[in-house]
Amino acid sequence: MFDLTGKTALITGASGGIGAQIARTLHGAGATVGLSGTRVEPLEALAAELGARAHVLPCNLSDAEAVTALPKQAIEAMGGVDILVNNAGITRDNLFMRMSDDEWSNVIEVNLTAAMRLSRGVLRGMMKARWGRIVNISSVVGATGNPGQGNYAAAKAGLVGMSKSLAYEVASRGITVNAVAPGFITTAMTDKLTEDQKAGILGNVPAGRMGEPEEIAAAVLYLASAEAGYTTGTVLHVNGGLAMI
């Protein structure tokens, strides 16, 4: 099950904790992976770890031209893009009343608009192939909201609306579009939280622990697989029961 042999996958934010694990998992299932991110060093380290079938494709997702060029570079490197994982995300947290236009627009640009541009860029090949998988990494806060994250939550909720609309349009062509909404996952970002902060968060998680990147990657692997061909326009919440929606 979930064999991706012969498939090509482009993963953004592959230098981060969750993105790197998604890349490892898809690669482990047999896919050729395109590792995208802004920081080249961790991407190259990951490519070296994976060995064959891994391509480093650096891209600054706040640069519209670079984003438009990325699908072409990925197709050149891998021969196509069968699976797109829009995982990259940034935070610029601030109280809503203090939020600057830049804090708002930077987060929307990278977390939402880049996902739109990349999806648009890979669709032509997927339409021709009559097969494609787009997986957008949303967040539990896109559904629940979170104080200080008006911009981030808006972008993450936006990904869900975008996924569903696109899912409608391309379902008849064998292309599925879904979202995965992680809850609190062990990453460099959550490592920075104090013990007290962690305890406060975990008090609301029925599972009583943080999630692991592997548990997000497993959800992505399912949605990227041939077996998930009838699953489209859905949001798979992976949050230990934090929000049962």
Partner: peptide, 9 residues
């Protein structure tokens, strides 16, 4: 409408 996009492609 999607067919027309594909035809153009």
């Amino acid at each position: 409408s999607l067919d027309t996009v594909e035809l153009v492609m």
